[in-house]
Design a protein around this nucleic acid. Structure first.
Lengths: 231, 231, 231, 231
DNA sequence: TATGAATGAGGGTTCATTCAT
DNA sequence: CATGAATGAACCCTCATTCAT
């Protein structure tokens, strides 16, 4: 049961148990936005990013096509929003991961783990990241979301950089590792592995009896080998 | 002047100076096919794979749109043909590379180099490989070219595998390298680095002062570090 | 400080210092109406009549789109209101012009001048007059504003007619001028010249070195030539 | 009955009674083009230029919407084609008119007549001319048709200029007429009169008992009065 | 009074593909 | 073998307008 009473002053009515009408509307709007995003992600998960059309999305959400445009300025904007969402989740995962890690090396390895886990749970984000990266390379348009997304991406990148630096300082990571080069290679490695898993998982399982979990583990060991101090 | 004479038996006519009419026609057909592919690659190089339309291609080749379909069953088939072509080139490059390499380690590193060089000279193949891989993952349609392409890909893959095996045997590569795992990681690494270069080259150059050539070199050193025997 | 007191009888409250609440509300409503019209004209001035959308207008006025419909029954009605406004201004200009003119001929010529000046200062009205005239020809819908506007147009027309009649009577205008025919031709002439100026000004300036001011002057001389008594 | 026989040489077949297959195809293509234009003009005649949609046109022609784009690059191009067509007709009418005229004055007056007759028979051209003039003023895009159309327009304009010059020379037109100024005013006058007729014909007929034929006649007399030499 | 949200209808354009010839 | 012509389906997006609140 919800307890509350109403105060009305002029045009403004408050439902006094913590939420004004304006707030409720705001919340409802966000819910609908998220519902649209959810539908979009579902479609992308099954048919791919470029295959998702606003027509399809309108049908899936049972909304009018024009309504979608009340929540997102364009199809591109919508995809940027998904990307943004994904990046936010990933950043949070990194934060949590850092709290569970002690040495710099541990942090880095847990970052890799976090990314794999993230993509494993939400393949959609891999598709959309990939799509927008390729798209943006040619257009370089900066929608609000894209801009904000870039900032998060930079922060994520920097988190791993910091872990590398602290690892080197503490001695858990080799001194002669070039941080920038390693960062690029590491993210490229992960990207390539994910691409491999998404496009050839079945082949590798059938031909080489390699599960994707195994491939992920190998990736981590591989990168770890490069970082580790040799005694 | 071409010397020759014609024998006609029923419907079949031979132009007897080394080449039958059927052969000549076959050759002409191939020439036109290649001309079409060349145009397609040019378009892809400038506008991307999904942006290349059959309309555009018809205009560029000065052929009728319907004619294109005499040479390729579908747009997809045409792209598969480009992929196939690329794989053939790459295989040849591998063969030449192997001839210049002595130890197993050298062979592997030269393979990597060969791939980078290949993509550097023909970005088109990266776009098309990427495109078809992502596409095929969901459709898994097996056009003749796709099938044949897979065989070449397997042979390429196997070449590196052989190099790894011989390197281990000879002692130029660490004994405890898991060949399959490394192969997957290596190709994923290269793929990821290429993606990085194509989508973020400018960013890395501007922000980190890293040229793509440098990144490629780092990749090789990175992989080499993993393979090398430590004294 | 505003002195006043309130009388309430049933639902009706009066704020007795000269203006009833109803009156104040009426006035506020008019202010907002005019604000909307002002924004609409600004948009039309830059993008044209058919390009002005209710969306744009809502944004420009910082009002909700639905709110616009509280002040104007439809987009068409809104444009009719602008037309009406323009006609009112023009009528006033005619009145002022008449006060500065002596002979009938002078009055007519000053009318022409007044129209040119009016359009020069407010091109928006030319666009909207033109737009609605063409539109109404096929639909002939009679919104309240359109009706009222027609009345003003008739009065304006009549003012020039009166000037012509008095000119003939006084002897400043040729006796054998057919008033109705001349009126139509004169308004058509002005309309055509305005259209020419708006659509081809640059051409005429570049090719014939004719400024629009010159064209306007020629128009007046041209019409004057027809009216003038020859000695 | 059509007499003819066929000669086949290689790929080329001739239907020997005056027309090759290629020619016939060409002719058929032109017929279809004209059929489309005819439908477009019909729609424009009833609903106006901006109201004509490609959807509507596809329905009217019983062609697929995409098919329309085989004949016209865009809606704009289609309208330009109508404009071009109209200008060609008008130019021809001018030529015929010139042949029937003796003095320069006669030529000019017959030009005016020719324009009125032209618009009377094909109101569509007035709508489209008007539409494209207003449109082009802001975009100034130069489709092939628009370019060619401009050339015809210039020739038409020049024809009247020549008539004026010769009239002045011969003495049928007043010496102190400024040719450029008059040309602009004359075309503006005609344009304005046509606009008046199309948008207010019924009003003038009902209120002033003025038929459009009468208005046209007045226009000619009006312009004639300005040109004529006074004795 | 004012508004946020929603919508049906339609805009022009492009796509890969397939006929009959 | 080659082509001109055609097409259905889909694309993203925008419009003026109307609800319930």
């Amino acid at each position: 049961m919800t307890v509350g009473y109403i105060i009305t002053i002029g045009y403004i009515s408050l439902w006094v148990n913590g939420m004004t009408i304006a707030e409720r509307k705001e919340r409802e709007k966000n819910l609908r936005r998220e519902m649209i995003l959810k539908s979009a992600k579902k479609i992308i998960a099954t048919s791919g990013v470029e295959e998702m059309s606003m027509n399809q999305l309108a049908e899936a959400t049972e909304l009018n096509k024009a309504t979608l445009y009340l929540y997102f300025a364009s199809k591109d904007d919508l995809i940027d929003a998904i990307v943004y969402e994904g990046l936010k989740i990933l950043e949070k995962n990194f934060q949590e991961s850092d709290m569970r890690s002690k040495t710099g090396l541990e942090k880095v390895l847990n970052h890799i783990n976090a990314i794999f886990a993230f993509y494993r749970e939400n393949p959609v984000y891999f598709y959309t990241f990939n799509h927008q990266e390729r798209r943006k390379a040619s257009l370089r348009m900066e929608t609000p979301f894209a801009k904000e997304g870039n900032k998060i991406a930079a922060r994520i990148f920097e988190k791993t950089a910091a872990a590398l630096r602290s690892g080197i300082k503490q001695g858990s990571i080799r001194k002669d590792v070039d941080i920038n080069a390693f960062l690029i290679l590491m993210y490229a490695q992960i990207y390539g592995v994910m691409h491999t898993i998404y496009t050839k998982e079945d082949v590798y399982r059938d031909v080489l009896s390699l599960e994707s979990a195994t491939i992920e583990r190998s990736t981590i060991e591989f990168l770890q080998y490069y970082l580790e101090v040799i005694n």
